[in-house]
Design a protein around this nucleic acid. Structure first.
Lengths: 188, 188
DNA sequence: TGAAAATGAGACATTGCTGTGTCATTATCG
DNA sequence: CGATAATGACACAGCAATGTCTCATTTTCA
């Protein structure tokens, strides 16, 4: 065997398929593997060589998306001081991962029972939200879980609007953060 | 002929199927007709008697959802004076229509080409949002379409939280409206 | 260049959803 | 009660997606 590690070619093909899957499934999870193969400029045969079953591709995309969100998460942590600032930076960093966000959160029920679907990220985020409430930067009357849902929802619609062209990409992060904090009211 | 109009029984069955379809398809549009029949406590045979083809059910649900949103819309209009107040009342009124909201707006691309898919409701709401912007109650820098997306997203997470028990129902409308206007920042 | 790796094209059986139909059973109402 | 409406339980064919396989071709790299 050639020692191991997949060749560069294989890595590139694998990435192309994952990107295509995120792009297609973000908008229509019922899309067929043939659609994804087409988007990836790859034959269905090749797709099946990399991911023998549909579920294998779903799992791989799940893991890959979470990994990329994790990077964004850590990057945001590294440059933040206060809890609210961390929340804001996470929202900002994550907006660039529109396809992954849409895939992960547009219908989380599709992952129930999936061993790779953990709510650890949620726990960390909930802690941050509670900290922000103690700091007086986030309304303590709002349930932390609900605040998190609002956050995800805003990230989701922001990503969606960027994908739809309604919202310029460079304004996405700032817009999401500002509405999260201050709603749609005019700046004073 | 039995004179007329469908018996009360038929109306009830029809409603049960529409409710089930909204509930199921709101979360997973690729769900099968069998899933919907189960949710409606009806056999697949019966479902096909009411809606011969899948597309017929989609169309009927589209029309029904639009009609119910329209009622909420008119009810809100009747008791509102300013544009922003109308927007708020609409949000409050349609929190109970979460399934219909998600079905209609989570992926509008599925209706392209459908003769029943008009964006009139959107247009009306967009006009209201623009009016609120002129009134100085809504940030003019926010794209109206995006503001509308935010509105729907908040309505959905609010309804979802009510269903999950995170948020008491009687606080739902007020919470959605407040976050829409002022975000999650503490009240001053 | 030549071997190995990677891919494309296609055949094939399987599976699940759909749409159609029949027949028996239950519910509704005059 | 009795007739009709409404439903449930199947059976069946058609179809698209899936998963497995083989074989020819192209690409990569030593």
């Amino acid at each position: 065997m050639t020692t191991t590690a997949d060749s560069g070619v294989r890595q590139r093909t694998r990435r192309a398929i994952l990107e295509a899957a995120a792009s297609v499934w973000a908008r229509d999870f019922s899309a067929s593997l043939g659609d994804i193969a087409d988007r990836a400029d790859v034959s269905r045969s090749t797709l099946h060589r990399y991911f023998p079953e549909r579920q294998a591709l779903i799992d791989a995309l799940l893991i890959d998306s979470q990994a990329r969100l994790g990077e964004a998460w850590n990057g945001a942590l590294a440059v933040s001081s206060t809890a609210m600032e961390t929340v804001e930076n996470i929202m900002g960093a994550i907006v660039d991962l529109a396809d992954q966000i849409l895939f992960l959160f547009s219908d989380p029920t599709r992952f129930v029972g999936n061993p790779h679907w953990t709510s650890d990220d949620d726990d960390g985020l909930l802690d941050l939200i509670r900290a922000a409430q103690r700091d007086g930067e986030l309304d303590p009357d709002i349930d932390p879980t609900f605040a998190m849902s609002v956050m995800y929802a805003l990230i989701y619609v922001t990503a969606e609007s960027v994908a739809a062209g309604t919202l310029p990409r460079h304004k996405a992060a700032e817009t999401a953060v500002r509405i999260f904090r201050h709603g749609v009211s005019p700046r004073e």
